[in-house]
Design a binder for these strands. Structure first.
Length: 355
DNA sequence: AGTTATGATTCGCG
DNA sequence: CGCGAATCATAACT
């Protein structure tokens, strides 16, 4: 560990290399954290310095003590016979004691380095919001694929490239988005409408060019890829904004989105569910809805449809698992897990501040 | 200072 | 292994 971090290795150079290696191993993007990195390196070298000076001190003390004991023994040898074996034994005892002390030093240094690493390299601690454009791109994809918001691996890579983030960050984002959208659909209604309308307009402009009717089963064929580039087109964006809110339903919405909405509304009306969700509620519908319609959404068929080209609607739905699971807001307020580790980390982190 | 938003992590499940 | 769910930790907002 200490060798890996360059603490117990050569005095210069090793530290920065190890730090860089550690950063690379931690999966960081490694783009903007040069300042924090230098801070990390500075702390690390501080630890290294303390370690080395302490080590030197101990060695010196060990030697001093050994010679001191040797002198004592020599003095005693005038009064009583002292065998070389006894001297050897004494020296051994002293060295063992000091090496155990050195072990402790190594251990505590190791601990300090680990804490330092967790402090500086733990991504949670240096969380940065994605920039607006990245969020726009992600949201655009999410809402234009609301019926199946599970980007394939290639789609994730593409999104990652467009957003200048990692694939795992894309996955995190979609995971968070899905769960939070589901938990509070109402809160995201406006956002959903906006992005749906934007995608619709982009799709409409595409279809106006090619006069290619968008199939409801392939909402991402023209919408997703083409719509990415319009995030910054100002006037178009403004014109789209007028489609927000209540005017959304009656507006000229792209066929791909609208047809899905219509399909869902039809199903809902058939089963007696409420129908105020529009596009946003395609994913999470109230209990008691025709499972075949739900299967178009997330969850039920996510493993089979998680691609760029969603297959045709499933023929026979599997037994629906727990209809209550799709209830939008089931707040149960579970007992908070006493996270002792959390507090332990906190307190131990405090120690690092003393460095 | 308190609250909300959000990116990341952890855990259990299928 | 990917996902949902719960949670943590920090940023951003009030």
């Amino acid at each position: 560990m200490l060798l890996a971090e360059g603490v117990s290795g050569p005095e210069k150079g090793g530290g920065s290399a190890a730090a860089a290696a550690a950063a690379a191993a931690s999966g960081g993007v490694g783009a903007d954290n040069s300042a924090e990195h230098s801070d990390y390196r500075a702390k690390l070298s501080q630890i290294r310095q303390i370690y080395h000076t302490e080590l030197e001190k101990y060695e010196q003390a060990c030697n001093e003590f050994t010679t001191h004991v040797m002198n004592l023994l020599r003095e005693q040898s005038r009064t009583r016979p002292i065998s070389p074996k006894e001297i050897e034994r004494m020296v051994g005892i002293i060295h063992r004691k000091f090496s155990s002390i050195q072990m402790q030093l190594k251990q505590s240094t190791c601990e300090a380095v680990m804490i330092l690493r967790s402090r500086f390299l733990d991504a949670r601690r240096k969380r940065r919001n994605f920039n607006k454009q990245a969020t726009e791109i992600l949201n655009e994809y999410f809402y234009s694929h609301l019926s199946n918001p599970y980007p394939s691996e290639e789609a994730k890579e593409e999104l990652a490239k467009k957003c200048s983030i990692t694939v795992s960050q894309v996955s995190n984002w979609f995971g968070n988005k899905r769960i939070r959208y589901k938990k509070n659909i109402g809160k995201f209604q406006e956002e959903a409408n906006m992005y749906a309308a934007r995608t619709a307009v982009s799709a409409a402009s595409v279809s106006a060019h090619g006069s290619q009717a968008n199939s409801p089963s392939t909402p991402n064929s023209a919408g997703s890829a083409g719509s990415f580039n319009m995030s910054n087109s100002g006037d178009l964006f403004m014109s789209v904004q007028s489609l927000n809110g209540d005017s959304y339903q009656g507006s000229q919405v792209g066929a791909n989105v609208q047809s899905q909405v219509d399909t869902l509304r039809h199903v809902i009306s058939q089963t007696g569910g409420y129908s105020d969700g529009l596009a946003a509620n395609q994913m999470y519908s109230p209990q008691g809805i025709n499972p075949s319609a739900l299967l178009t959404g997330m969850g039920a068929n996510r493993r089979t449809v998680a691609g760029r080209t969603p297959p045709p609607p499933p023929p026979s739905p599997p037994p629906q698992k727990d209809p209550e699971a799709f209830t939008p807001t089931p707040p149960t307020d579970p007992p908070h897990r006493t996270d002792s580790l959390h507090h332990a980390t906190r307190s131990s982190l405090q120690c690092v501040n003393d460095f």
